Computed example of a mutant assay.
Amino acid sequence: MDIQDKVVIITGASSGIGLATARLFAQEGAKVALAARSADTLHTIVNELHEQHREALAVPTDMSKKDEIESLVNRVFQQYGRIDILINNAGQAVRGHVADVDIDQFRQIFELNVIGPVEAMQAIVPKMRQNGGGLIINVSSTAAHMHLPVIGAYAATKAALNMISDTAREELASENIRITTMFPHVTATNFGKNSMATPKTNHLRPQLNVPEPDSAEAVAQKILDAARHEPHEQYMDR
């Protein structure tokens, strides 16, 4: 897909991969709608993009709340009359072994990492149908293909998102709605620091044998590549 002038919703856009992706897509000429819970941060980012003569819109959104997700999609559609790309990037981790991970925290990240993207897809598919198609990029993780102690709950949410993506790809293909699953590896962001834990599990850290994490900007570039070429799956080393 040619990114110039395309309308793109990016969730989790206030920091990390989402912020880097929003900046890169705006730089490439897309009209970007930034969604995250932090209204002040979003407006600051959008003001910076406006100063660079980029088209950007801040839509504060809690991606674990259906009504806010629907409001996000409707707001962007009202503003631009179309939505070409949805990048489901918002997510969070929880630390803990399967035997003692906090179940309420597990439910919370499942709502954000799985139910939120599904609700976003359900809200946006009718809009894409009106415009003859569109692209959905669901940001997963290579953790979903591994068996890493401490982050099994997080990996399980991404494995669920992978299955949702694969199934929806088949279901929506005839309507020209394409789905790409993005697989970042370890990334140099505050994602790990922002993961949930309890006093019992706070000291736990996954043992990741990687020489150097990818930058958020490197992941954003791969997401841009995925938007342009639309593979079913996009990995960092492809």
Rank of each mutant, 00 (worst) to 15 (best):
Q4Y: 10
K6I: 07
V8E: 01
I9R: 04
G12L: 00
G12Q: 06
G12K: 02
A13K: 12
S15V: 05
G18Y: 01
A20K: 09
A20S: 13
R23T: 10
L24A: 10
F25Y: 11
Q27P: 04
L34C: 08
L42M: 06
L42F: 01
T44L: 10
N47G: 06
N47T: 12
L49Q: 10
E51I: 05
E55W: 06
E55K: 11
A56G: 03
V59H: 11
P60E: 01
P60M: 03
M63S: 13
S64F: 05
K65V: 13
K66F: 06
E68Q: 15
I69P: 03
L72T: 07
N74E: 15
V76G: 02
F77N: 15
F77H: 15
Y80N: 10
Y80W: 13
D84N: 14
D84Y: 01
V94E: 02
R95K: 14
D102W: 09
I103G: 00
I103Y: 13
D104S: 09
Q105E: 07
F106A: 14
R107E: 12
V114C: 00
I115T: 15
V118N: 02
A120I: 05
M121N: 04
A123S: 14
A123T: 07
I124P: 01
M128A: 06
R129Y: 10
N131S: 14
N131H: 14
G134C: 11
I136V: 12
N138I: 00
N138L: 03
N138G: 08
S141P: 09
T142A: 07
H145D: 12
H145Q: 14
H147C: 09
V150M: 10
G152P: 01
A153Q: 02
Y154E: 04
M163C: 04
I164M: 13
S165K: 03
A168F: 08
A168V: 02
A168C: 08
A168E: 00
E170N: 14
A173P: 00
S174W: 05
E175D: 06
I177N: 04
I177C: 03
T180I: 00
M182E: 14
H185Q: 10
V186S: 13
T189E: 00
K193Q: 15
N194P: 06
N194F: 03
M196S: 12
P199H: 00
T201M: 07
N202D: 14
H203W: 12
A216F: 01
A218C: 02
K222Q: 12
D225H: 11
E233H: 13
Q234V: 04
Y235M: 08
